[in-house]
Design a protein around this nucleic acid. Structure first.
Length: 195
DNA sequence: TGGATGATCGCA
DNA sequence: GCGATCATCCAG
């Protein structure tokens, strides 16, 4: 089994975790079903102090997982047809999550294309939060899974430390001006240009 | 550029 | 209950 990030990595301020997740390696499945990619774009969603967060108004049935143990997946269903994958952050009792927005495919590109249902160039396989969920086979059945084994894994960055570009979160109405989006500068696999 | 499509949650 | 909201994607 490949290396994975320890729970202590996630049990920190969400903004720190978000920044440090750029370059991390996301993988799902194994053997013929192994799919792997390098995280190149994330967004931080804080707890009660962040109006854009699902946890903004305290725990609800959906957001309770954001208040739970760190290092687990928070998967939610959006727009009637899409899923988004987050990593839960902060110590248990404090809400926080990092939305994975884009991934650079490393392995299992054929399976990704099959799951996406279209013939796509590599840079278009995982260049959005819902697209990467499709490519990685992530749906609500993954909600709450630990990110250190089993179906979903998040491993430490490999190679040189990426240069980080900071920007505003995409597609939200509230608190849209906060610099909570972190990208690998110059990556060709981002969901939106620049950073 | 707009249509698809449904879970969630605050408020009544 | 009801309706506005929503961290989206894709066809045309």
């Amino acid at each position: 089994m490949s290396r994975v990030l320890p729970v202590s990595f996630y049990s920190r301020p969400t903004l720190e975790v978000a920044r440090d997740l750029v370059g991390a390696v996301l993988s799902s499945g194994e053997g013929d079903y192994l799919v792997e990619g390098r995280v190149v774009e994330v967004e931080a969603y804080l707890g009660r102090d962040d109006p854009a967060s699902h946890a903004a108004n305290g725990p609800t049935p959906r957001s309770a997982i954001m208040y739970g143990p760190p290092g687990r997946a928070y998967v939610y269903f959006i727009y009637g047809m899409h899923h988004c994958l987050n990593a839960v952050t902060e110590p248990e009792g404090t809400a926080g999550a990092v939305l994975i927005r884009a991934v650079e495919p490393l392995a299992g590109l054929d399976l990704m294309a099959v799951r996406r249902g279209r013939r796509l160039p590599p840079r278009r396989l995982c260049d959005g939060p819902a697209k990467l969920c499709r490519a990685f086979g992530v749906d609500l059945s993954c909600n709450g899974l630990p990110l250190d084994g089993g179906r979903l894994r998040l491993g430490p960055p490999q190679g040189p430390r990426p240069r980080i570009a900071v920007g505003r979160r995409i597609g939200i109405a509230k608190a849209a001006d906060l610099p909570y989006r972190f990208c690998e500068a110059g990556s060709g696999f981002l969901s939106a240009p620049r950073g």
